[in-house]
């Protein structure tokens, strides 16, 4: 219950800030309704609904336990790392890291995950770059690729 309340409160604050900002947009002429009315029409009901969830949450949330939360955080870190390292490292190396690490986070045997990473990163590169003609850098910018 409490976490539903808390998250609904966060949505309420976002909706309130959204509505307040939205009401400040204006143009001098030419447009009957202007850019601010629609955000206000959307923002106020969003405040009402999220507000009502704060007061009457209507059901709680089962959060995963600590070890699973840790796995989720690790997965997000892996995904972000991939987004940032894709261009510097090039597709096959970065994708090897992504698949091997995610495989391990998802509970796969580490050795098998590494093998899967090697095989699939090369297979995906061959399939997309060589066969389907989607340009994916083989070597990244740090290798001068």
């Amino acid at each position: 219950m409490t976490s539903t309340r808390l998250l609904a409160a966060v949505i309420f604050v976002i909706a309130a800030v959204y509505t307040w900002y939205g009401s400040t947009y204006s143009v001098a002429f030419g447009d009957v309704l202007g850019p601010s009315v629609f955000p206000v029409i959307v923002g106020i009901p969003a405040m009402l609904l999220s507000g009502s969830l704060v007061v009457f949450p209507g059901g709680g949330i089962d959060w995963p336990d600590r070890s699973h939360l840790f796995r989720q955080a690790a997965a997000i870190a892996v995904l972000l790392g991939y987004a940032w390292l894709l261009t510097p490292l090039g597709f096959p190396i970065a994708t090897f890291g992504l698949i091997a690490a995610l495989g391990a986070v998802l509970g796969g045997d580490p050795l098998k995950s590494v093998v899967l990473g090697v095989v699939m990163s090369l297979a995906l590169w061959v399939m997309f770059d060589q066969i389907l003609g989607l340009p994916l850098a083989f070597l990244g910018s740090i290798f001068g690729g």
């Binding site: 994708t95 698949i99 091997a100 495989g103 998802l106 899967l116 989607l134 340009p135 994916l136």
Partner: peptide, 18 residues
């Protein structure tokens, strides 16, 4: 699943990135 989902993630990234 441990082998399927990483591949799904990689394909999603390829699509969005390209």
């Amino acid at each position: 699943t441990w082998a399927l989902m990483p591949i799904v993630a990689a394909v999603s990234f390829v699509g969005v990135f390209s």
